[in-house]
Structures are given as C-alpha cells and as structure tokens.
Design a protein around this nucleic acid. Structure first.
Lengths: 211, 211
DNA sequence: TTCCGAGGTTGACCTAGGTCAAGGATTTCC
DNA sequence: GGAAATCCTTGACCTAGGTCAACCTCGGAA
C-alpha cells in the first residue's frame, strides 16, 4: 500500500539510513520484528512461499512506503520475506526506540496513529473488495479506485498483469478474459499495461448491479 | 474484531460514558467521524445497506471492542451504520481530544499505536484468508484459528451461520453444504452452532493441500 | 537478423459454488 | 404453550472461473 505520507524531518532523523543492494534481504519470514523500514529510494518486494516453495509476491514497495511497521509495532514476527529488487536506500526504525520515543515525541505519536489508522481503512476496503462476487466487479472497483472520476481516464498498471490478477484474488487467464470482455463491451480499452476507461459512469453502474 | 485489550484507568477516564438504548444508533454511514466508541457492555452491530436497501451486517461488537477508532483517528467518514442491539454502555472518545491528548499522554499514544498495529495484522490475516481458493479452505482456516490446537476441541460460533458465511465470503447454502461434507469426511461434528473438531491434524493438512 | 524466454492470450473442459425454490428447524414474542 | 418469523438445510440447476495446454508477442542477447 502506498502511504503517501511524508516523514517529518524530526521523525526522519530517528531513522537509521541503510543501503540495501539489489537482491539483499531486509528480513525473512518468521523472524521476530524488531524494527521496520521506510523506503527512501529503490524497490522492494515482499513475498511468501507457498507449500511447494514457490514464491508468491504479496506486495511491492516503492519510495515513500513503509515496510513492516504494523508487525513491528504490534510486536509480532514478519509474515513474509522482503528483498530489494533494486539497489535501495531505506531508513530503519527500531521498534523499541520508536515505541518509547512516542512518550517524548507527540509529533511521532500522532504520525504513527494516523498512519496506522489510515492503513486500517485501506485494508478494510480491500476486504470489502475481495468480498465482491465476480472477478469483473473486482476489476471494476480496482479501476474506479484509481481513476479521477471524470469522463475518460487512463490507468497505468504498476506491475505485471499476473500480479494484478493475484491481488484481485484470481489468476492471469481469468483477468485476461475479463479485460477482453469489458473491452468488447466498450467499457475500457486495453493497450499493454495501459487501460483507458471509456465509460466511467457505465463502469460504476456495473459495479452496483453486481453484473 | 475482538480486541481483548483493556483500557488503562487513565485512558478510560478520558472517555465519556454513555448509555445507548436498544435500537438506538451510535452513528450512521456517511457521517463525519468525530469520535469513536469503546463498548463496556451490551452489543452493537455495524451494518451497511446494499443497493436495494437491504441491511448487510458487517461486524458485531461486544464488550471490550472498539468501534470506529480507525476511521475516527484517520479522519474519515463512517462507512457503516452502528446500532445497539441491546441496551449498552459505551465510552465515547472525541477524536480531536484523543489526537491532541497523544501529546500529553505517552501511555495513550502507545496504547493506540499498538491497538491499531494489531488491528492491521488481523485485517491482513483476513485478506490472506479471503485469498484462499475454496470455501472449504476458508472454513478450515477459520476453525483452526479458534481452536487451541490440541487433539479435539470445540468451537462455538458467536453469531448466526449466515453471518459466518458472509464473513467467509460466501453464502449460507454453501457454508451449510461444506460443513455437512466435512462432517461426512469425519473432520468435524456440527451440532447447532457448536462445531467439534475431531481431527485437528487432518484438518490442518486439508488447508495446505488446497483441497 | 534470429533465437530464446517470460509474460500474455486463447481454447476446451470441468467443478466449485451461486441462485432459486421448497421444506425443516429454531427463535422470538405474545 | 403456540403461532409467526427467522434461520437453516437440501435439491436441482447453471454459470463463473479455475486448470491444463497450446500458442502468440515482445524485448533482450548473440
């Protein structure tokens, strides 16, 4: 989840800058979460392993995103592996230091409370979205979620289509078929990883009618 | 979500006690969230309306649960209606007061940071769970989630089966069929809203194998 | 240029599970 | 207690979408 919150200079100063070379791990699944990261530059992927040891990407982080903050602040163990896919720069925050720092730093306390509260909202929305019956509905809701709302607008996928499929709780084939269908219905226009929304109102209607 | 965190006496003193008579609303969907609630006693249900104006229960709260804290602290609008289903007693916390109080009350800051962080984890788990392919898997994971892990154990559903169905992203019919199937497979024993897990290890295996 | 490999698309097929409709079984309320 | 209203279960049916396998496309390397 992109957080789009900028760190206050003061908070920033509490983080320890680190460089993570491409391919290096920030942490591994199952490790006790003693701290968390703020990504200054680069790219990190979080993934878990399925039963057969195949990797399953959970989320991909870019500059401005936090990584592992909820786990660390709640005092759990990382549920995923995190690996830099490019040379990256991060700030590392020690869990205990932040927690005890909350006492002295009202700024920071507010910041984290709002950060986490916002995250909860986003997660809740995702839960709602996953509750939607059809894949098509989920696609629609995803598209609407990142379109300004006007007549026509363009959505550019950040990752692979297969990642989007996974995120929407389906598989590439089904995503592909649905996109084509929607294209034939004149709702959208797909070109590579660019999706142009042709008929925003009708798209919105499709969401409600449960079609 | 049950939170199972007890309020510190000090924090508790910041809440304004209120009595909510059965049937009364704590807030309505779409209202600006100026505060949130902590349920001392009674029962509250949160629900939204689907397109046809039918009510859809989202969650049911009992004593010890918070209501609307994430929305309020993030500064949004309530996404649901909240109504007391029994005479209830709550503490009401004013959003602004809490937020500004974080400056003076390190205790409170820590409390809310941990509360929200924990909530994020729970929500994440639910997202993962909803990503499971089959309804049966989701049932299994739900049952395992509330079973101590030993040989046999008993799970008592807190609400209606239809609520559980909805929570698992399905419908009562399918839930019913799956439960019966699992019963025939000798995995569980269903009596009313009591479910006895007969074969915990085998159940766990069923989760992994994706069957 | 050609070759190669990963991602994407398509088709054929089949099953999980959603819908509709009809009983049972519990609660609830008088 | 009994009637009414909810819930729950079951059956028949059908469609969304997952699986498997083949093919296409495009970008990078030789």
């Amino acid at each position: 989840m992109p957080n789009a919150m900028s760190l206050s200079p003061h908070l920033r100063s509490q983080g320890v800058p680190k460089k993570i070379a491409k391919g290096c791990f920030l942490f591994g699944s199952g490790e006790k979460a003693e701290g968390f990261y703020y990504l200054l530059a680069g790219e990190v992927r979080a993934f878990s392993m399925d039963e057969q040891g195949r990797e399953v990407e959970v989320v991909r982080l870019k500059a401005g995103d936090f990584l592992g903050e909820a786990v660390a602040l709640a005092g759990g163990v990382y549920p995923v592996h995190a690996q830099a896919v490019r040379d990256s720069r991060v700030l590392y925050f020690d869990r205990r230091r932040v927690l005890s720092g909350l006492s002295r730093e009202p700024e920071a306390a507010r910041f984290f409370v709002e950060l986490l509260a916002r995250k909860c909202l986003v997660l809740n929305q995702r839960i709602e979205a996953l509750g939607l019956r059809t894949v098509r509905q989920r696609i629609v809701q995803y598209l609407l979620g990142r379109c300004s709302g006007g007549g026509a607008c363009l959505v550019e996928l950040s990752g692979r289509k297969s990642e989007l499929a996974r995120r929407l709780g389906t598989i590439p084939e089904t995503l592909s078929r649905n996109l084509r269908q929607m294209q034939e219905d004149g709702l959208i226009e797909v070109r590579g990883r660019r999706i142009r929304i042709l008929d925003c109102p009708r798209l919105r209607a499709a969401l409600v009618r449960g079609k």
